[in-house]
């Protein structure tokens, strides 16, 4: 078995493998991620994230999202899956949208693959109307884009909703999704796998 990021052969095994032999990342790659469960308020809703968005995490996320490396699907939630399943039992995962062109080019929904390992009910009720890439925008421009997310027509929303995304930078996408939900959902929580360091 090889580490999915550095490609190093791991048949030899390490001390950690005695307790945790299934992790798709090797000890070294995993240790570069900074795991930190934080909770904060975003738009009046409780948000939670598990990792700090640092260089190693972003490298992995880019390889998964931009270079379409589907093999990395289980890497992100491997350590926190049990915890999430327990904390958010009864919730329905509600995935935030990518722009349509991008997901068409990708050929798969990266969030659906990423959160599939939780084995929880999943819906994708949103649609993104602009296709502008957020990467090159600054904070003000991002916050101005909140209206870009709308609910699809005729979507039935469950009672308890967990809004899921891969990373929270400014929170603009999340606020957009919250605005699109309005009063239609009874209970909403937010979960992002990683959060920018400024949320700490």
């Amino acid at each position: 078995m090889r580490c999915l990021m550095c490609g190093k052969n791991r048949d030899e095994g390490t001390f950690r493998d005695l307790f945790d032999p299934q992790d798709p990342l090797c000890e070294k790659c995993r240790s570069e991620w900074r795991r930190k469960h934080i909770r904060f308020r975003l738009g009046g809703v409780t948000a939670e994230s598990s990792y700090v968005y640092n260089e190693a995490f972003s490298r992995c996320l880019i390889q998964f999202k931009e270079l379409n490396d589907e093999a990395l699907r289980d890497v992100f939630l491997y350590e926190v899956a049990d915890r999430l399943r327990f904390r958010y039992r009864g919730y329905t995962l509600c995935l935030l949208p990518s722009s349509e062109e991008k997901s068409a080019a990708r050929g798969f929904s990266h969030l659906r693959l990423m959160f599939a390992c939780l084995k929880m009910p999943m819906i994708e009720p949103f649609r993104k109307v602009t296709s502008q890439d957020q990467k090159n925008l600054n904070r003000e421009e991002r916050l101005a884009m909140q209206d870009a997310i709308i609910l699809k027509d005729g979507v039935q929303l469950p009672e308890k909703i967990l809004l899921c995304d891969d990373t929270i930078t400014t929170g603009a996408t999340m606020l957009g999704a919250l605005a699109a939900l309005g009063q239609k959902a009874q209970k909403v929580r937010i979960y992002a796998v990683s959060a920018n360091i400024r949320w700490l």
Binding site: G7, L67, N68, E70
Partner: peptide, 21 residues
């Protein structure tokens, strides 16, 4: 073989993934 992975559109090579799939 360890570097090949079967994704939604078929097999691809992960060794040179940094140059695109």
């Amino acid at each position: 073989k360890a570097f090949f992975y079967r994704g939604s559109r078929g097999w691809y090579c992960r060794k040179c993934i940094s140059f695109g799939r």
